[in-house]
């Protein structure tokens, strides 16, 4: 088996060793330990019982559902944002561009607090929405808002370089062949963006699944209703129920892992036209 390609640069062995060691140290060992704990401290029957309580099931549904919705919303509006930021020149463009990174830099607790205040009954937005029957704060809608907020930079930042590299000539070629703006966008530009869009979607989705800080402030955290899985794990720990917390954690882990693998495969398919 020759997986080592001849290269004029030395150090392949060393760098591969370093990569494996480092990934083991900070990713594989902690995750493996988690698994091992589940296997050694409880049987599969007990694991299944703890991982599939009604409360846990509802929290999975909320976490993955809200994350999916938020990632989808970001895919649409993030693309639009990236498009405007790369395609047009206007005063304040650089400022807007910098603002995109804000959710990266802001402590998530601050984001949660701000959103909760904004959408609460007396908040600047809440005072109009609540009378209309739209409850954002302390409801599942609030979770989606928070997850959208923290996920937007991932889409914008992965799409921007691809949009910048789009050749003007390719669009002109489509035009000379008779394609209008919409047709060119759908058949030429979107397929080119698709692999990057999938990457951005995956990052935004993964980030949302793991989000804790901003959500707990706005969610209301009612069991079975607005309680996300990371919070449930935290509550279990507070009750000194380590095995219960761990069972739920392992489910999260497996879910996230499967999703990321799936998205990766999809990405590979979508970028089949590249080297």
């Amino acid at each position: 088996m020759a997986f080592k390609k001849p290269s004029p640069l030395p150090g392949f062995g060393l760098s591969l060793g370093y990569t494996v060691f480092y990934l083991s140290l900070i990713v594989l060992i902690p995750l493996g330990a988690l698994f091992l704990r589940v296997v050694t401290h409880m049987g599969w029957v007990e694991f299944w019982k703890l991982a599939t309580t009604h409360r846990a099931l509802m929290s999975y549904r909320l976490t993955f559902g809200a994350s999916l919705v938020a990632a989808l919303v970001n895919s649409v509006f993030g693309t639009l944002l990236a498009w405007v930021l790369t395609r047009y020149q206007f005063p304040g463009r650089r400022l807007l561009d910098a603002l995109v990174d804000f959710p990266f830099a802001l402590p998530t607790a601050v984001a949660g607090l701000t959103l909760a205040d904004l959408f609460s009954k007396n908040g600047w937005l809440g005072r109009f929405l609540v009378p209309a029957g739209i409850h954002v704060a302390y409801a599942s809608l609030g979770i989606i808002v928070a997850l959208t907020f923290i996920g937007i930079p991932f889409i914008v930042r992965t799409l921007q370089p691809v949009l910048e590299n789009l050749e003007r000539e390719v669009e002109e070629a489509a035009a000379t062949l008779g394609a209008g703006r919409l047709r060119t966008f759908c058949s030429v530009i979107v397929p080119t963006l698709f692999p990057a869009l999938l990457t951005g979607f995956a990052l935004s989705f993964a980030r949302a699944i793991g989000e804790y800080g901003s959500v707990v402030f706005i969610a209301g955290n009612k069991p079975n209703e607005s309680e996300i899985t990371p919070l449930l794990i935290f509550l279990r720990l507070e009750e000194y129920d380590y095995t219960g917390a761990m069972a739920i954690a392992v489910v999260m882990l497996l879910f996230s892992f499967t999703l990321l693998i799936g998205i990766n495969l999809l990405e590979r398919w979508a970028s089949r036209f590249q080297n």
């Binding site: 000539e169 390719v170 002109e172 070629a173 489509a174 000379t176 058949s187 080119t192 698709f194």
Partner: peptide, 20 residues
């Protein structure tokens, strides 16, 4: 418009649709 002119244009960098 360019779409209606019925011309064929070959660009310097070819401008092929790389996803097709």
């Amino acid at each position: 418009s360019v779409q209606q002119r019925n011309i064929g244009f070959v660009f310097q960098g070819y401008a092929l649709f790389k996803t097709m």
